[in-house]
Amino acid sequence: MIEIKDLFIKFPGFALEDINLSIQDGEFFMLLGPTGAGKTLILEAIAGIVPITSGRILVKGKEITHLPPEQRGTSIVYQDYALFPHLSVLKNITYGLRYHKNDPKASEKWVTRLMEQLGLQALAQRSIHNLSGGEKQRIALARALAVNPSVLLLDEPLSALDPNFREDIRDLLKKLHQEVETTFLMVTHDFAEAMFLGQRMAVLNYGKIDQIGPVQEVFKKPATPFAAKFMGIKNVFHASFKDTTARVNNLELHLQSPPEENKRYVAIRPEDIIISKNGASGDDNNSFQSKVSGVTDRGPYYEVSTRTGDVIFRVMLSKNDFFKLELQKGKDIHLSIRSSDIHVF
């Protein structure tokens, strides 16, 4: 178990404040946040690479706050691989073995197994120059896991990879996590990666944690406007509440149940809003006349902005649906939102 208690790190112009995290043994935990939020700093603080101003870090109940990096039992993998350029693939992978008092035969067996799992046997004697990004990242993973760390720290390991390698390594990470006993702590700014790999996640917003929880919960029920927007929720509105009604400017939205006190926002995922030509059918509790105010091609889908009174909704539509509905700017349409799809926080 990794416990981070009241961690505070101050740098000129930036501070990580009041970081409290508890990560279970063997968990795949994601730290999600935009660039500059301080995600890498948390990883490097756990690894002992950056000095902390105050707070405590414990791994498996042992205080490691003031231990040098080599005594912490953590391994780190960076997005730029950071392989030793003067060593061969095998020597990179076995670099740390001499510092861990393991049975040499057991170590050799473990390294062979890791290399098999990561498909690196054929590359063992190669120089690390002229290898692909995917191969380099697999070597970096093998090197980090070869020493059997308590915690594997992954600093955006998929960011520098081509899309085809990215999926391979992502699948591999999931598989490796299931097969080893190491706790994985990964930093990313991509919520899709976090959803695929993580069991729980923390959303980091400029030096502070906004929300911690199981990935599905954070995805569906973000606790702050920042977390909501970071989870891809494009419709986040300030609202006032009365019974089961939320009022956003002049628009009334019907909720499934009366919200608890102190709730201030409503959030609706762009894929949960239904556009139709002639009004809604079924059990949709909220349906409005609206007008298309803009269309953006997002590659695999269209993002349609529609204006209802003075509220603008952003709706995600598949290309197929978009062409079926013959949408264009200025067209009158019908919007439907199920009460159960409105998240209040």
Binding site: A47, I76, Y78, A82, Y95, G96, R143
Partner: peptide, 15 residues
């Protein structure tokens, strides 16, 4: 890159 040294330290090597 200082990251090479960081990696080496995290793998168990002293300064």
């Amino acid at each position: 890159p200082v990251r090479l040294e960081n990696i080496s330290r995290s793998l168990g090597a002293s300064l």
